[in-house]
Every structure is written in C-alpha cells, then in structure tokens.
Computed example of a mutant assay.
Amino acid sequence: MTKVTAQMSVSLDGCYTGPRDPRGEQDMTGWMRGPEAPGFFRVTRWAVDAMAWRERQGFAGGEQSADSEIVAEMFASAGAYVMGRRMFDAGEVPWGEEPPFRAPVFVVTHRPREVLERRGGTSFTFVTEGPERAVELARAAAGDKDVAVAGGGELLRQVLAAGLLDRLDLHIAPVLLGEGQRLFGPGLGLGPGEGIELAPVRVVESPGVTHVRYTVTGRSALVLDDRGASGELVGPATTGQ
C-alpha cells in the first residue's frame, strides 16, 4: 500500500536550515551566500558524505556506511515525489539535466509552468491546486511505491497539518544552531489542547547523525495527568530541574 513519507534533516534544536534570507527569493548563487545555507549544509552533511548520495548525484567517493544505506533505502522506496516551489527553484540548476529523483516530481506552486522533462525518468509537474492535489497526483504516479515529500519544511508542515503524512524520518544532527527555520511550531493547524501523535518504530545511530523513524498516528486531545494519589493532580516532573 502506498504511504506518504517524509525525510528531513534537522539540528538538535529542530532547525532544518539557517534563518530565512530576508532578501526573499534568490537564485542558487545568492542562496549560497545567504544566511540559510550554512545551517542547511551542516545538518545534511551526513547525506553528502554518503556513498549512495554521491552515486545518485553522479559523483565519485563517499562512505559506505549505515548513513549510505539509509539514503539508498530512501531512493528505492519512492515512486513519486512532492516538493515546494522554493526547493525546486534552489535545485533546478545544480540538479542539471539528470536530477537524482528518477521518478515523477509534483511541485506545489502558485506559478503555473509547463511540465519539465529531464533525463533519467525525472519529470517536474507544477501543481497550483495545493498540497492535497499534489499528493493525489503523486499517489497515482507512484505505483506500488511510496510518495516522498522531498521538502522543504514549509511544505512538510502543510502536509502534516492536512493529515496526509503516514511516516516521518527525522535525521538529527548533533549540533545546536541557535537560530534558523524550525521544522515544527506554528503552522500545524492544531487547536487548543490538541497534538499530533507519532510512534517511534526505528532508530539507527551513526557518529554524525541519529535516524529516527516515526509512524504518524493522528491527532489527539491533550489531557491533564490526574494519575496521582487520591485523584489529585500530579505536579510537573522534577527530573532535570
């Protein structure tokens, strides 16, 4: 059964990139000089060093490791991708004529554009009807494989808020960025006293990153913990205080 999955590399304090560039949309050269790039490349260093990632990009070298196996698994399981327009704009030039996806990619955007065909099986279809429609089209294109939400963070929040995400893989780099664009927070569409529950199903550790897989189990009401003696409310835990 096709699942909607997402992969995201984050710092220990939850940032997937540095602070948003105040200059607005930039070409790739401008983005590389801006405040976002240093944080982004720090949290994704584990992937860039992996042999499977480098092979997919057409580069030599890299390490054959648990991280490389994670990357290979990620590509093998995806039959179609969904991504945001900002990510596409940043990647269009460096991905070149043969992008690493090798599958249909559906780009969520407000700016229509003709389908862009690339070598190796990658096509970019620009969807102006929102993330729900993009996921619907990707499901139809994925066959018996998964739909992978390829980023960025804003799109992932929208997909999660809409209840479309089945599985989330977080790749947690052992670094504190202090400031940057955080994956979670406002924008999840949660009401007062409501949360989105996730169940951890796999943890893979390596020296440069910890890979945690979660199944998204859905929204639930948050309740006070009244398991104390005589039905009295239990105060805040003191561990670590």
Score class of each variant (00 low, 15 high):
186 P>A: 15
220 S>W: 01
112 P>W: 07
229 A>P: 15
128 T>L: 12
117 E>F: 02
179 E>F: 05
27 D>F: 09
133 R>W: 15
173 A>P: 06
213 R>D: 11
1 M>H: 08
78 A>N: 03
88 F>T: 00
6 A>S: 09
97 E>S: 08
213 R>H: 11
168 L>R: 03
21 D>G: 15
101 F>P: 00
95 W>K: 00
238 T>D: 08
147 V>D: 01
174 P>N: 05
26 Q>H: 08
158 Q>D: 14
138 A>S: 07
36 E>Q: 13
171 H>I: 14
66 A>M: 05
36 E>R: 03
173 A>T: 12
183 L>H: 00
130 G>K: 14
76 A>F: 06
208 G>C: 08
187 G>I: 10
154 E>G: 11
170 L>T: 04
33 R>D: 15
225 D>N: 10
49 D>N: 07
234 V>S: 15
165 L>V: 06
79 G>Y: 01
112 P>L: 05
53 W>V: 09
6 A>I: 02
172 I>P: 14
132 E>T: 14
206 S>F: 07
234 V>D: 12
222 L>W: 03
81 Y>V: 01
127 V>Q: 13
43 V>Y: 02
129 E>Q: 13
218 G>L: 09
54 R>C: 09
138 A>E: 01
37 A>W: 11
105 V>G: 00
1 M>T: 12
156 L>Y: 08
132 E>A: 14
218 G>D: 02
71 V>E: 06
27 D>L: 07
89 D>S: 05
237 A>Y: 06
232 E>Y: 14
74 M>E: 05
209 V>A: 10
80 A>K: 02
155 L>P: 10
64 Q>N: 09
107 V>D: 01
142 A>T: 05
209 V>D: 04
157 R>Q: 13
177 L>V: 04
225 D>Y: 09
147 V>E: 03
42 R>S: 15
127 V>G: 04
194 E>D: 05
191 G>Y: 08
116 L>S: 00
62 G>Y: 02
145 K>Y: 05
63 E>M: 04
68 S>R: 00
115 V>T: 10
18 G>P: 03
11 S>G: 12
203 V>K: 04
181 Q>C: 14
83 M>P: 06
111 R>Y: 05
126 F>M: 03
107 V>P: 01
229 A>H: 15
153 G>A: 12
197 E>L: 12
152 G>M: 13
69 E>V: 10
141 A>D: 05
96 G>C: 03
230 S>P: 13
16 Y>H: 12
109 T>H: 04
185 G>A: 12
165 L>F: 03
190 L>N: 11
